[in-house]
Design a protein around this nucleic acid. Sequence first.
DNA 1: TTGTAGGCGTTATCAT
DNA 2: ATGATAACGCCTACAA
Lengths: 331, 331
Amino acid sequence: MASIKDISKLTGLSLATVSRVFNNSPLVSEKTRQKVLKAAEKLDYQPNMMAAALRSGKSKIVGVIVPEINNHFFSGIINSIEKKLSDANYNIIISQSHESEELENKALLSFLKLSVDGVLISISKETTDFSFLKKLMHQKTPVVFFDRTPKLEVASSVVLDDYKGAFMATQHLIDNGCNEIVHIAGDPKVSIFNRRRDGYVDALKENNHRVSENFILTLTHDQETDTTVLKLLFQNNPKIDGIFAHGDEICLYVMNILTTLGIQVPKQVKIIGFGNVDFTEHTYPRISTIDQKSNEMGLLAAEMLLKNLNNEEIIHSQQVLSPELIIREST
Amino acid sequence: MASIKDISKLTGLSLATVSRVFNNSPLVSEKTRQKVLKAAEKLDYQPNMMAAALRSGKSKIVGVIVPEINNHFFSGIINSIEKKLSDANYNIIISQSHESEELENKALLSFLKLSVDGVLISISKETTDFSFLKKLMHQKTPVVFFDRTPKLEVASSVVLDDYKGAFMATQHLIDNGCNEIVHIAGDPKVSIFNRRRDGYVDALKENNHRVSENFILTLTHDQETDTTVLKLLFQNNPKIDGIFAHGDEICLYVMNILTTLGIQVPKQVKIIGFGNVDFTEHTYPRISTIDQKSNEMGLLAAEMLLKNLNNEEIIHSQQVLSPELIIREST
DNA sequence: TTGTAGGCGTTATCAT
DNA sequence: ATGATAACGCCTACAA
């Protein structure tokens, strides 16, 4: 690969002058600029980012960590992050934590060694110690958290208002005449699932509905067990007429079980999920759900990072996105 | 950040010796090795990959390009690629081509500037000119193609036997008593879709079934138009009893339209997709499909690349994965 | 406006 | 087994 040294030789100009051309320095005459550009063309010159990075301390690389890339929500976010950052001429390197703090730190260490310019991260469920991230941040490397954020005082973040989304979903069921509403809850280790639960509970309270612990279920994902659990629930509470599930996959899963049990959706029971995963549009009946704004989230997180990448000063800001109610045939 | 220079100062050893320790050179006594390691620990030393990359020409970065990251199949592949390569201490940088040759080349150029050690790519539908990729390959940068490969003589690749998958799907319908089988075809610009079509046609022929152009449809994705098309098709050919769709999404889409038209699946018409996307397991009825082996594909591609990354000689090999028939309730 | 020279952190080639 | 030194490709005072 040709280097500026080759161009320097070909044109008879100094290394400094050639370098200035590629850094758009105004301190170079139009004539020599053209000469350099022509030589560059001829030699098929491509700047070596490693060298530039080493010298300037700016790698033009942003590290992204998600729990699982193979997940609609996260790959949606990555999609918009990649779009935004590649437009700004940044490369993104991606790692998965697989919900393990160890892998997360390993990736973070890799980023450090690679001297990434910034980090976008959705922390793993397991992560409790943020010393590594703090270290990064103390090094003036901007970090933006999305979706899953740590309880740190000073941090930039973009999250969804999960509470609000859950509230909207529950309210929607109530508005459509549901009186006995069950919640299929998620892993309580994940704060967003707790917020969804809270939204459900508060929506019930606000509408003077009874809140019962028996109506808050966590399933095992073992089809037989879950079928039995639901069967019993409906036997004991035949008036149940609404279900709010904390996720779309589990929502579809429950809907299928109900069908097996001869319970009709939405006739007997209305059901709503959370996530607006693609397939919700293709099921029968199509599933009502809460859109998580993955595109907006990725975009906002990327924009936040870009802002901090350009400014010398790091400005922390917290953005909360409002979810959107998507009404389909299941409610 | 501490550098080997700092360690050198602290220990009184030379830069060379310190460097040798971190490169696991045998030419260093256990005693000094320990001394260096201790100092490194104390200074919280982390090697600077940019510097190492510049000097050694090895960046420990692999570039990955897919059409869309926000796609089950590709994110599944990326998932296994990331797992495999991060285990081998490689970082992966990801770009999307969004089916545009221009974006693809832009990403490839970025990779070049970053001096990636290797490239994994599934080419865009639009790509016809591979000069850029050839340039990379001539630079001794190993490239492995997956799923969508160019018609190049010398290249490493991992693909699915789409023909076989389509054949299996069609044969499965025939085995289950279908006599009039329709194929929902994909974009003929994509070679794998053509191979699926060929598999369908040949399976019919081999079973002495009539092949009719009228039974090979490409839909518009406009719900109204498509509904009309299918309605007419079934009015004119009421004996149609099987559908093989080139993808799971379109399969679900068609299944929904059939339901709208009062056609029962699988009672009247059996239907099978292609892809084994997650949701096929959650629909009602659950969709039979062909698994694309995304995990195996990513793993194999990564392994192929690793092999070429380690060897001096680049060895080209072509792997063809056999798809798997997943039988569910729709057939 | 252009050139000189030192250095970013590492590795590799000589010596010793 | 260890050390001195040049080089990777680029940027940037400083000098001219």
